[in-house]
């Protein structure tokens, strides 16, 4: 973004103002009486966006094809259960969920980073499946179980309404966007890019491959976990079969790939499409998934760089970018 520095002042100010105004408008949505359904879909948008952003950080920028986001989300959800059942406030559950997810990521990093490429992918696919059975067996807080399985209600969130859920989701969504911006422009981001292109070359030029991957993994796990906990505060109920479900991976994958993996804006565009499809086809659950599957295959075959990557390649975008840069 070096070219931006040469930009004329008005455009520069506009660039700065636009996100601030956008966030402010989004934040007052619940107060000005936006329909509940809209808030609900925006809530889902921000939660999914956060997860997709973090998945993009791992799969797109760090070369870690991580197939187990469900493990982090499920663990954070159950941390939330434990926290709220011990009469602690829910926000501790969100932070705790993030911490537990991050700690778990650090724990599995040691064995999984030994696996390379496709083995890493499958190794991390096994993790949520195993965890699901752990939570079928282990009853973390005892007490009454819901729905015949091993499900729990989230306690102590009775006074919270969709407005609060929405603000939480908005906050984490914005945090995830800024986090991506900061990480990708930091030394960590550059090191990760080097590792993704060739880990051997990176290691031989002095990049500590394991440590950088670990940092990215732990950061992504924390944010994904926190977003998962926020989702379960809204859901109010958690069960192993849905918490450690491959659907979480599908959401991250769809949003990132449709929008454009390895682009910063990709997950935003992709998540809009994913949530829009949810909205449009809410009554036909299976059909919505079918369409998403078809889109995934078609996008991958025709424009593997995703919508954002594709738009960037077009001539119109390039000339616009050149115009904005004042050339």
């Amino acid at each position: 973004m070096d070219v931006d520095r040469n930009m004329k002042v008005p455009i520069n100010q506009l660039r700065l103002m636009l996100p601030v105004v956008l966030v402010a408008v989004l934040a007052i949505f619940p107060i000005i009486g936006t329909p509940r359904v809209w808030l609900l879909y925006l809530f889902l948008f921000f939660v999914y966006l956060t997860m997709a952003n973090m998945w993009n950080l791992l799969a797109g920028y760090s070369g870690l094809t991580f197939l187990g986001p469900a493990a982090l989300i499920g663990l954070a959800g159950y941390t939330l259960v434990i926290v709220t059942w011990n009469d602690l406030p829910f926000y501790l559950g969100i932070i705790g969920g993030g911490i537990v997810a991050a700690a778990f990521a650090a724990l599995i990093a040691v064995p999984t980073f030994r696996m390379r490429g496709i083995y890493f992918a499958i190794g991390t696919l096994v993790v949520p499946e195993a965890l699901r059975y752990v939570f079928y067996l282990w009853k973390p807080v005892g007490g009454e179980m819901q729905g015949g399985g091993a499900g729990y209600m989230i306690k102590g969130i009775g006074e919270l309404s969709l407005t609060e859920f929405y603000w939480l989701a908005l906050a984490i969504g914005i945090v995830s966007i800024f986090l991506m911006r900061i990480i990708l422009r930091s030394k960590l981001g550059l090191g990760l890019a080097a590792i993704r292109d060739s880990d051997r070359a990176a290691a031989s030029s002095g990049v500590d491959v394991f440590r950088l991957k670990l940092y990215a993994f732990v950061i992504a796990a924390f944010v994904t976990g926190a977003a998962g906990a926020i989702f379960y505060i809204y859901q109010g109920y958690i069960a192993p079969a849905s918490a450690f479900n491959i659907r979480w991976l599908m959401t991250c994958l769809l949003a990132t790939v449709i929008g454009g993996i390895r682009t910063e804006e990709g997950p935003i565009v992709g998540t809009i499409i994913v949530v829009f499809l949810h909205f449009l086809l809410a009554r036909y659950g299976a059909l919505s998934l079918l369409i998403q599957g078809v889109i995934l295959v078609v996008i991958m075959l025709l424009i593997p760089e995703g919508i954002v990557g594709f738009v960037r390649k077009t001539r119109a975008y390039r000339s616009l970018a050149a115009l904005a840069a004042g050339r």
Binding site: L253, V257, L290, Q292, G293, V294, L296, V297
Partner: peptide, 9 residues
């Protein structure tokens, strides 16, 4: 990713 898409379909 394509295999995932086929699986979803």
């Amino acid at each position: 990713i394509i295999a995932f898409g086929i699986s979803l379909i």
